[in-house]
Design a protein around this nucleic acid. Structure first.
Length: 320
DNA sequence: AATCCGTGGTG
DNA sequence: TCACCAAGGAT
């Protein structure tokens, strides 16, 4: 028998059973593989954005065995448009390691899971809690906001927030608790206008008590501008494309050849996390090298970044 | 420790 | 139009 019961944790668990978003696609069936793929997609990505990508990914690769022989580019194609494309490469590398070191079985120990590429402490905690029912804390944006407010923190402190996440975790129900705490963060404890009247944690919440609500603030660094002039080579309904290896972003995605210039007449302004891209597209003649001709019917088969996909779609419709 | 990495929604 | 930020991790 426990001497002191974790009231907050058990309240979250109870709330989840009744009010949780149990119909999310990655919650229908929680195999370690499915939880892993969903957690990778959900890194810095909202639920609504990840949904369709998850369903599409799982349709093609429903389990580890089906993804065993997939190439990096095949996985990248399923990631097309989702962003943070490194995650697709991490999935490729991780599944290679799982077959090499773990006999094709997803590992179930913290040290093994966090050793996989793209999996940090929080993702490992989510997989352990949700896929294996083992009590490990998580610290995503939802949990940061909920515990930051529960304990009325003024600023984010990594170590302190991990302690709080671990403290309120319902160790007897990690599966229900972790999904519940994230759902409370996502559906009640909004960054603006938290719905405190509906919150199961209201009687413990110090922010509700004194009316000052913690909000996680990232340092904002000014975005550097990058001017890219894309060279459009056309031939027989084809456009010449290269695999980008050296922009620093969009690595290993396909695009027309480009030059980095000092300035240009931008047609498209596109923001990345830390860059402001100014894109110009110039129809060019000559003999390009280092890539291949792609027919307009095959644009969809190549992993391309969003603004390039949009531009290619235009070309395919109009003057090719 | 600070910076890098995408895209879409929201105010 | 624009700032902010989301189921973060790697370097």
């Amino acid at each position: 028998m426990e001497i002191s019961k974790n009231m907050i944790g058990s309240e979250v668990t109870t709330w989840y059973k009744k009010n949780g978003r149990k119909d999310l696609p990655w919650r229908i069936k929680t195999t370690p593989y499915r939880v892993w793929i969903s957690e990778m997609m959900l890194q810095q990505t909202q639920v609504n954005t990840a949904k369709d990508y998850f369903l599409n990914f799982i349709e093609q690769y429903p389990d580890l065995e089906s993804i065993k022989n997939a190439s990096e580019e095949e996985i990248l194609i399923l990631w097309k448009g989702l962003g943070y494309y490194r995650r697709a490469k991490f999935i490729y590398q991780a599944k290679e390691k799982i077959f090499k070191d773990y006999n094709g079985l997803f590992p179930d120990e913290f040290e093994d899971i966090i050793s996989l590429p793209g999996i940090g402490k929080s993702t490992a905690g989510a997989i352990l809690s949700i896929a294996y029912g083992k009590p490990f804390p998580i610290l995503d944006a939802n949990v940061k906001r909920v515990v930051g407010r529960l304990y009325n923190q003024e600023s984010y402190q990594e170590k302190k927030f991990w302690e709080l996440s671990k403290k309120i975790l319902d160790k007897s129900n990690p599966f229900l608790f972790q999904q519940g705490i994230m759902d409370i963060g996502a559906t009640i404890c909004h960054i603006h206008n938290p719905q405190c009247d509906e919150c199961p944690l209201g009687r413990w919440c110090l922010s509700k008590k004194n009316g000052s609500f913690y909000t996680y603030k990232k340092k904002k660094t000014p975005k550097k501008k990058v001017f890219l002039n894309y060279e459009i080579y056309k031939r027989d309904g084809c456009i010449y494309m290269i695999k980008n290896m050296d922009l620093g972003f969009w690595n290993e995605l396909w695009m027309p050849p480009y030059k980095i210039v000092e300035n240009n007449n931008r047609e498209i302004k596109h923001g990345l996390s830390h860059r402001e891209l100014h894109l110009e597209f110039l129809v060019t003649s000559g003999t390009p090298k280092g890539g291949k001709w792609i027919n307009k019917n095959e644009f969809n088969n190549l992993p391309t970044p969003k603004p390039i996909s949009d531009k290619l779609e235009q070309y395919a419709k109009s003057f090719l």
